[in-house]
Amino acid sequence: MDLRERRKQRVRAKLRRGSAGRLRLSVFRSSQHIYAQVIDDEAGRTVAAASTLDKELRGSLKTGADKAAAEAVGKLLASRATAAGVDRVVFDRGSYVYHGRIKALADGAREGGLSF
């Protein structure tokens, strides 16, 4: 198992211990896009999802790989999650350090109404 996978598993283990039944906001970052989804681990399903590939965002973004795009994805995800009845989540940053695009997405989700 490589270091990145070990770091991701370590973060998820801490989330499981402290989540208290809350849903998980999971983030994936590629070199060109950013994706986020709210996951119900107990039921094994995705409640809400958003990415820079969504039609609502694609035309308005300059690129899918900057902080502005990540913040827009966070706001869109928060609006979809609140429409599905979710307002409290636990933030799963995966193997990524909490800065840059990951932090911008989290801030956008908080502005959109999610609390974590």
Rank of each mutant, 00 (worst) to 15 (best):
R4P: 02
R7Q: 15
R7D: 12
Q9R: 11
Q9A: 11
V11C: 05
R12W: 00
A13G: 00
K14N: 04
G18C: 00
S19P: 03
S19W: 05
A20E: 14
L23P: 07
R24Q: 12
L25D: 07
L25I: 09
V27C: 07
F28A: 04
R29I: 05
R29Q: 05
S31M: 08
S31N: 14
Y35V: 14
Y35E: 12
Q37M: 09
V38N: 12
D40T: 03
D40Q: 02
D40H: 02
G44Y: 15
G44I: 14
T46N: 11
T46L: 10
T46V: 15
A49N: 14
A50K: 09
A50C: 13
S51T: 13
T52Q: 09
T52M: 12
L53I: 11
K55M: 10
K55F: 00
E56G: 07
L57M: 05
L57E: 05
S60C: 09
K62C: 06
K62R: 14
T63F: 04
A69C: 06
A69L: 04
A70Y: 01
E71T: 03
E71F: 07
A72E: 07
V73K: 02
V73F: 01
L77R: 07
R80H: 08
A81C: 04
A81Q: 02
T82L: 10
A83P: 00
A83E: 09
V86G: 07
R88P: 04
R88H: 15
V89Y: 04
V90S: 07
V90K: 03
F91R: 05
D92R: 03
D92V: 04
G94W: 01
G94F: 01
S95Y: 06
Y98P: 11
H99W: 05
H99M: 10
R101D: 08
R101W: 00
I102V: 15
K103D: 15
L105I: 04
L105R: 03
A106H: 15
A106G: 14
G108R: 07
R110K: 14
E111I: 05
L114C: 13
L114Y: 13
S115E: 15
F116K: 01
